[in-house]
Amino acid sequence: MSRGHHAEKATGKGDPQCFRGEAPQPKFKVGDRVRIRDLPDIFYTRCQVYTRGAEGVVAVVTHESPAPEDEAWDNVDAPEWFYIVRFKQKELWSEYPDVYANDTLQTEFSERWLEPV
């Protein structure tokens, strides 16, 4: 594999588009309730600590890509689906004021971080 393989693969397609069709079927769909797993992250991760253990709803099934925890180490062999999950702010921050109970936060996870509720 050449050192520039990321750029070569993405040329003319874009990243993450260049991984289209490489992941197994998505396990979750829009509207599914999910919980964020608390996996070990002693090396690289993009899963924020404030989301660990929180429950939310899948808002968008976005794209396929290697998980950043793999891609950071140049392992691009096992792309997975990514999901934007919507949380109630109160679910993330217990002190969030009740008067703003409708407020939400969305962020994105690779499939390994989600478990069904």
């Binding site: 899963c47 976005t62 990514f82 409708n102 939400t104 969305q106 962020t107 996870f109």
Partner: peptide
């Protein structure tokens, strides 16, 4: 206003 949902998007991946 309080009756409008504030929706924060934390952009953490490739979107």
């Amino acid at each position: 206003p309080a009756d409008v949902e504030v929706r924060v998007e934390d952009s953490n991946q490739k979107c």
